[in-house]
Each structure stands twice: as structure tokens, then as C-alpha cells.
């Protein structure tokens, strides 16, 4: 078996929360991510879905090096990305980059497009003006902008164009992995399609691997190869996009899919799975959570395990 591009093993992230006790000494630990493991293959789009507070963003920040994990290992091509022996920001920058959700907050208002794109190149040792210009020009064309637009400032662009600039900045150092944090949810509907198409085109053209963080399951179904469903810091179901969308098994996955306000589903309720239907026990074992009640985030979750129920299709069950 070939080595995965990115390997995450038993990732835990806990935050100390001040409070309690007279002098604020009673620190509690917020369990944000509880033992996430997955791997990402070259050219793959892996989506992490879940609702606010499920730990999907914390997981992404850990991969980007913006959040140090409490436990666990993240490896890029076999090399550790965290803990001792982790590379500096400079090396990591060429491995993983990120496209942000809000195109209005993700560009420095005081920097022109050219400056935003040229500065990282210079930082990484590309100093020849002609090469910098060439790469900026090529990258702007890649994302559907014109080289003439490079001298403009962010406020001169629409939301969709800003997102294209954000994508260009993420790709300028030619990373292999791009983390997409809700890449289209802040955009107008008609612009979303353009950005989704662009991301899929770039993935194919540049052989990129995506980790997409999203709560929008229609977009996830459209773009992903594999899907991780997270609920309060744990993966509750994992599988190929077909398995997740055609045979969702965990109650929470079913609930998420049933909740999508999809016009077709809303207007033709035939064949819609009733999310309220009682789930049968799976091979005599029960699910830890039905994805309704919010667990206590200050205690470690009850022991459970991901059980393989199909080819690469896993679901979280209580310990037998």
C-alpha cells in the first residue's frame, strides 16, 4: 500500500477553560477533539462535516499548525507535522494551505493582490522579479482573474472575486494539500457554483488534495470522495460519499441529511428517510449517541469504537 499524503492518528485537542473557583483556579478542560484518525490520499477530496462545536475547525487548524494538538500525531508523507521534529512554518507552508470562509476578512485590506501574492514567494526565496510576475500572472489566470487585476486592492472586488484571490494565495506556494474551510457558504448562491467548479477544476489540473470543512451537505456530496461525519469531537461515521449519502447509518448522519433544505426533497417527500424512525441495533450493538442531546464537553466521551460495516465504511458504536 502506498503511503498516504497525510495521516492523522488519534488526534486530541483540549482547551483549558478558566473559571470556577474563587481565584479562577478551577480550570476545566474543554474536550474539543477526541481521538480523530484519518488519512488523506493524493488527489482526494475528504470532507469533514458536522455542526458548530463539533471540532471540525479545530481539527483543520491542527493540520495547518495553527493549533497545537494535545495528543496524537499528524504526519505528512511520513514526516511528523507536530510535536518534536515538526518542521517550521516555512516548510509546512509548502505542504498545507488554507482557503478561508469569509472572503471579506481573509484578505488584508491594505495590500494589493500583487503584494499578497508576491510576499510569500519572496519569503520562500524566489527573488527574481520576472519569475514572481510570471507566477502571479499564471496563478491569476488559473483562478479566473486577469493579470491586470493584480494591482487592485481587495475592496475593489466582489465576494466571488475575493474568494478567487484567496484561492490564488493558498495555491501560490504550490502546496499539495489545501484545507477548504466552508469555502462557499459566505457567497451568494449564483457565485457558489462558479467557485465549486473552479475548485474541482484546480483539483484535477494541479493534482490537489482537499480537506473540506463544511456543514452544507449538498456541496459535500457534490465535491467529496470520502466523508467524515463529526459529532462533539468524535467521528461518528466515515465512508465514501456514496456510502454516506446512499446508506447513511449513524442516527446523526441521517439527521443531518434529513435536515438539508433541498428543494427536491422538500417538494417530493417520497422516499425520504424518516429521521425519527427508531434505529435497529447494529449487530446487536448500540450507538453511543443519537446525535440529539449535546454531551458534556468537559468530560471525556464514553468509550466507543469505530466499527467497519462495509468496505471503508465505519460507524461509531458503544463498546460491546
Amino acid at each position: 500500500m502506498t503511503q498516504p499524503l497525510l495521516q492523522v492518528d488519534d488526534l486530541h485537542v483540549r482547551f483549558p477553560i478558566a473559571g470556577g473557583g474563587l481565584l479562577g483556579t478551577g480550570k476545566r478542560m474543554l474536550h474539543a477533539v477526541n481521538g480523530i484518525s484519518f488519512s488523506l490520499a493524493k488527489g482526494e477530496c475528504l470532507s469533514i462535516v458536522g455542526e458548530s462545536g463539533c471540532g471540525k475547525s479545530t481539527t483543520a487548524l491542527s493540520i495547518l499548525g495553527l493549533q497545537e494538538p494535545t495528543e496524537g500525531a499528524i504526519r505528512y508523507r511520513g514526516q511528523p507535522l507536530n510535536g518534536p521534529g515538526a518542521p517550521g512554518r516555512m516548510q509546512r507552508a509548502k505542504a498545507v494551505q488554507m482557503v478561508f470562509q469569509d472572503p471579506y476578512a481573509s484578505l488584508n485590506p491594505r495590500q494589493s493582490v500583487r503584494t499578497s501574492l508576491a510576499a510569500p514567494l519572496r519569503l520562500h526565496g524566489i527573488t527574481a522579479a520576472s519569475e514572481i510576475e510570471g507566477r502571479i500572472e499564471a496563478m491569476l489566470k488559473n483562478v479566473g482573474l486577469t493579470p491586470e487585476q493584480a494591482k487592485r486592492y481587495p475592496h475593489e472586488f466582489s465576494g466571488g472575486q475575493r474568494q478567487r484571490i484567496g484561492i490564488a494565495r493558498a495555491l501560490i506556494l504550490e502546496p499539495e494539500i489545501v484545507v477548504l474551510d466552508e469555502p462557499v457558504s459566505a457567497l451568494d448562491v449564483s457565485i457558489r457554483a462558479q467557485i465549486i467548479n473552479l475548485l474541482l477544476d484546480l483539483q484535477e489540473k494541479l493534482g490537489l488534495s482537499y480537506i473540506m470543512i463544511s456543514h452544507d451537505l449538498s456541496v459535500v456530496e457534490h465535491m467529496s470522495d470520502r466523508v467524515l461525519v463529526m459529532f462533539f469531537g468524535e467521528v461518528v461515521e466515515e465512508g465514501g460519499w456514496r456510502q454516506i449519502f446512499e446508506a447513511p447509518t449513524h442516527p446523526y448522519t441521517r439527521r443531518l441529511i434529513a435536515a438539508i433544505p433541498d428543494p427536491d426533497v422538500a417538494l417530493k417527500p417520497v422516499g425520504r428517510q424518516d429521521e425519527r424512525a427508531e434505529m435497529p441495533l447494529l449487530a446487536g450493538r448500540r450507538f453511543v449517541s443519537d446525535g440529539r442531546a449535546s454531551p458534556d464537553v468537559f468530560t471525556p466521551p464514553a468509550p466507543s469504537e469505530l466499527v467497519e460495516i462495509g468496505a471503508n465504511h465505519k460507524v461509531r458504536l458503544a463498546m460491546a
Binding site: R89, N108, P120
Partner: peptide, 17 residues
């Protein structure tokens, strides 16, 4: 916490820069 500051971190910028 603005996106562009986080982006600069992922692009390899040092703290002072």
C-alpha cells in the same frame, strides 16, 4: 483572528513580519 493573519501564518511568515 482575521483570515489574512491566519493565512500569513500558514504561508510561513514569522511573528514579527
Amino acid at each position: 483572528s482575521q483570515g489574512y493573519v491566519q493565512a500569513a501564518q500558514t504561508l510561513g511568515y514569522g511573528d514579527l513580519r
